[in-house]
Design a protein around this nucleic acid. Sequence first.
DNA 1: ACTGTTCTTGACACTTCATTCTTGAATTCC
DNA 2: GGAATTCAAGAATGAAGTGTCAAGAACAGT
Lengths: 193, 193
Amino acid sequence: MGRPREFDSEQVLDETMRLFWAKGYRATSVADVARCAGIGRASLYNTFGDKHELFLAAVERYQRTVHMDLVEIITDSGSPRAAIERAIEKVAEDALGESAKRGCLLTNSALELAPHDEKVRERVFESFDRLERAFEGAIVRAQQEGEIPTHREARKMARFLVTMVQGLGVVGKTNPDPQRVSDIGEMMVALLG
Amino acid sequence: MGRPREFDSEQVLDETMRLFWAKGYRATSVADVARCAGIGRASLYNTFGDKHELFLAAVERYQRTVHMDLVEIITDSGSPRAAIERAIEKVAEDALGESAKRGCLLTNSALELAPHDEKVRERVFESFDRLERAFEGAIVRAQQEGEIPTHREARKMARFLVTMVQGLGVVGKTNPDPQRVSDIGEMMVALLG
DNA sequence: ACTGTTCTTGACACTTCATTCTTGAATTCC
DNA sequence: GGAATTCAAGAATGAAGTGTCAAGAACAGT
């Protein structure tokens, strides 16, 4: 009961995510979010709490949409090696053009907030860990099926891939040069063996 | 002529660098810097201009001290492969403990400012490019001396290493676990061939 | 129509921050 | 010693930005 909301909170959260993603936590004001979402500031405070909680909600949305998409590409049924290569290709694409400017919200948050914000650190780590496990699972299956040689431990290769994904999020921000990014993607695939 | 400065500007710049490094650009106020350096705000403005110029000066100092140290390890005379491995070890060390919380000022700046600040983007890219060229030179020499196999292009391997260095700067911030970092360092060395 | 509840809107207090200005002090050159 | 110059220190200014509040509007159930 009571007066109904005049906005769709998922839609507002989407806009919130987009802004924090593009500009970072501190460079984004609650007024910015309200304006872009087309609602009043007080409505944001009313619905999500303070700025920090709003940010956490946006990160959570990123985790269960954008980041989940990547994990699902890797855990797809079918050839595990092909799945890994598709994931690499997707990450490489995101390191080019306009999307390179945003990079990855989790990577951005890790650098801006993780050292001084335990909650953010935990959430970000959680996602990277899930990515690592997805890679590890796919590598193990690929090794069983003879698509990837077994002389390297799956976990170490998974950690290598996660580090490269994070590194690509940095490279794209400083110089989204197609040749450079393609070289890096090629190395990632080559180093699978 | 005129009244002499009561502080050493290199020392102040050092403190400035330390603060921006640990907290980022937006989270660091000019008042913070002045307090930590033990001088008045107006002295900072007088000496370095505005906040943005102060930041650029701090980045420049980082480039010619901290980052140069890394480049010099790589371009050291002696076995080029050993030099690369020493560089990897150093980067891995920096991804652990307290230094992991700061990470790399260039990587941090890349994510926080590069997309909206052309001057910062250029400076950061410049340093990463220098690092890439250092790696490439060392790899070429190592290949000539038979320390690294020649079936992969030196430039691509160099780009791979730079990406890993940046990735390690992210990993350390979210989870400076010695086992994880050591796995990653091991993979970097292993993938040299 | 009445009540209780929840939302919207605009205004308001409070804080922080970047930057400038004013005043006075220290130093060099003449 | 005086003039010109540069520096130091703190107050002052103006612009954001965060969070709260009061008053009214919209709805559900009775």
